[in-house]
Design a protein around this nucleic acid. Structure first.
Lengths: 150, 150
DNA sequence: TTTTGTGCAAAAGGTTTGCATACGA
DNA sequence: TCGTATGCAAACCTTTTGCACAAAA
């Protein structure tokens, strides 16, 4: 990691009262440089390869600490593993139902406000997310038969 | 289960080439009568209480068969367990970040179409879902301190 | 009679926890 | 020094799998 990059991360950590520790640098640096919505396991493998002492538990701890601090966003798109995204600006996601690829969809405009009656009375909405599902370019021509044959 | 209800379910099963089996009746009937976005475990406990022979694996099998047949919708709202919803009409969800309650949000209007450029080139969007997060009526006044104290 | 589903137990992910040790502030 | 994070292993929870048996069509 470049010195200047580490200094940026350290500043972000300190602003949020997060301790600066090697695994936290490594986790956030990895997510920033690999904006592919990695799972915790993928982050673990990458971080652990650089520093074999880094453990799974610590990667989970770091991901949660970074998420709580607002430096990382946890994205739940399938029933398997949570994914983590260092892009915390408002945006949505497109998921390919066939190959599982996840792509960002730029936030194009605010959602039209639904009638208040649509929400449970007294509730307060803080955020919303839109998940689009379909087939990515590489999979949109493929048939189910091809899919089954790999 | 009322005879007329069972006949309705049987008709729905046959239309979709699903075999009519006791666990499938029980699972779908439970979801229809308890529109609370139950987890597989909750469905299992309810079904198993009525018929102690029903197993977890069978409840999972039934949920998946019903989902594939379009009679049930699988909803992924937290990193823990999938939830199942017998309401397959287009609608969205509100999740209370504090107590985890899930409420339906009526589909009020189509989303404005995002610019095509927002999507990966060549991709085909089939569905979308919106998840609103915030605090439900019962939790919107509670502070984090109260939350910690239980 | 053929095909598909069931039920049981065991295994397989993904994630969390307990605790002694190490390290940042 | 004090308080928090790390690292390891084991536990946990949800979901899947393998297989013999049972039931639906």
């Amino acid at each position: 990691m470049r010195v200047s990059q580490r200094q940026k991360l350290a500043a972000a950590f300190r602003t949020r009262a997060l301790r600066c520790t090697p695994p936290r640098y490594a986790v956030l640096d990895y997510l920033l440089r690999n904006p592919v919505h990695a799972t915790a396991e993928e982050v673990f493998r990458a971080v652990n390869e650089t520093d074999p002492r880094a453990s799974r538990a610590t990667v989970y701890n770091s991901l949660h600490a970074l998420t709580r601090a607002g430096l990382v966003r946890e994205v739940l798109l399938d029933g398997k593993a949570a994914r983590f995204d260092a892009n915390v600006h408002r945006h949505h996601h497109f998921v390919c139902e066939r190959c599982g690829a996840v792509k960002d969809v730029a936030a194009w405009t605010a959602l039209p406000r639904p009638p208040l009656a649509a929400f449970p009375a007294g509730s307060v909405v803080e955020t919303y997310e839109v998940v689009f599902r379909g087939r990515c370019a590489g999979c949109s021509g493929a048939t189910d038969l091809e899919e089954r044959n790999g």
